[in-house]
């Protein structure tokens, strides 16, 4: 660029710098984390997917060069794998539903609560969120124990004669997953309820709606972004549950993560374990995307 030319278009008044100049600050700030995530997250995940496409039956060193869907066919043929997928889906749906029914009233109630009560309840929710999953699951081992409070209460009420085996069951897993998911459900719902102006409640009531109808017709639809966020998170967490079914379930209630981990840690079958986890991840993501599209269409909200 000549001196004359630069006098005509000085750098400062050029409508916009080059692409690089424009994005340089962002690129420099993002680079360290992006590099880290590329190496230690994206590449390993890619390798896992690659591993799942190899032929490895466990007894000999086989040809690893050509990609094959062998492991996925095996997954579909294995009743233990398909059974765990169906079970995981069932448990997750149930957990999300119950978790929603328990959490929404808390979130709504927080909206009306005084400052002290609200802070107290939020503290309890945050402490739950922050406390160990193992500790919380152990709490359910205590509550549901043979000589635990639930059994003793049922006996005291004369409903049963001998303690029921409540632990190591699908019911126990669902209970613990609901408990684990509640903070994830309460916080986003509360967040989106906070964004609904109080005039919406009042407008609905002044037009003749009862509180219940206002909730159903106005508040619930408008809190859908939070409901979606919460249900999606709890669903994803339940679909990938591992520690909870290990602690509160039995071999006959194995969830997908358990079946895959077994292949890796016990059978040392990396290929099949990877295929099962890839399947779980893809299925979960597909359901979440479909769910998001459905919510977007029905409730006209951006999620």
């Amino acid at each position: 660029m000549t001196a004359t030319a630069s006098a005509v278009t000085p750098a400062a008044v050029r409508p916009r710098g080059g692409r690089w100049q424009r994005y340089a600050p962002a690129a420099l700030l993002l680079a360290p984390l992006m590099a880290f995530m590329l190496i230690f997250y994206l590449i390993p995940i890619g390798q896992m997917v690659g591993e799942s496409l190899t032929y490895w039956s466990g007894d000999a060193v086989e040809d690893k060069a050509t990609p094959t869907l062998y492991q996925y066919e095996k997954t579909l043929e294995s009743s233990r794998a398909t059974g765990s997928i169906v079970r995981t889906f069932r448990i997750s749906l149930l957990s999300v539903a119950i978790c929603f029914l328990l959490s929404y009233p808390i979130a709504l109630w927080l909206l009306f609560a005084g400052r002290k009560l609200r802070t107290g309840v939020l503290l309890v929710v945050f402490i739950s969120l922050a406390s160990s999953l193992i500790v919380r699951n152990y709490g359910w081992l205590v509550v549901l124990a043979d000589a635990g409070p639930v059994n003793n209460l049922l006996i005291a009420l004369g409903l049963i004669e001998f303690p029921l085996r409540l632990t190591y069951s699908e019911g126990a897993i669902v209970t613990a997953l609901v408990h684990y998911g509640m903070p994830f459900m309460i916080l986003p719902i509360y967040g989106s309820l906070l964004r609904i102006p109080s005039s919406f409640w009042e407008a609905s009531q002044s037009l003749g709606a009862t509180s219940m109808r206002t909730l159903w017709r106005v508040i619930l639809p408008l809190s859908m972004p939070g409901v979606f966020g919460g249900t999606m998170l709890v669903f994803a967490v339940s679909m990938s549950a591992f520690v909870t079914p290990l602690m509160l379930g039995s071999p006959s209630t194995a969830m997908v993560s358990q079946v895959a981990a077994e292949q890796l840690l016990v059978q040392l079958n990396f290929a099949w374990g990877s295929a099962i986890m890839t399947t779980l991840t893809v299925v979960t993501l597909a359901i979440v995307v479909l769910y998001a599209l459905a919510v977007r269409k029905v409730f006209r909200v951006d999620v």
């Binding site: 005039s199 009531q205 002044s206």
Partner: peptide, 20 residues
């Protein structure tokens, strides 16, 4: 009387039109 039983029409400051 509860607000929903009164026959009162209100135009709110922020209009409170239900966006959905």
């Amino acid at each position: 009387m509860a607000p929903n039983k009164r026959n009162v029409g209100i135009v709110f400051q922020d209009y409170a039109l239900f966006p959905h």
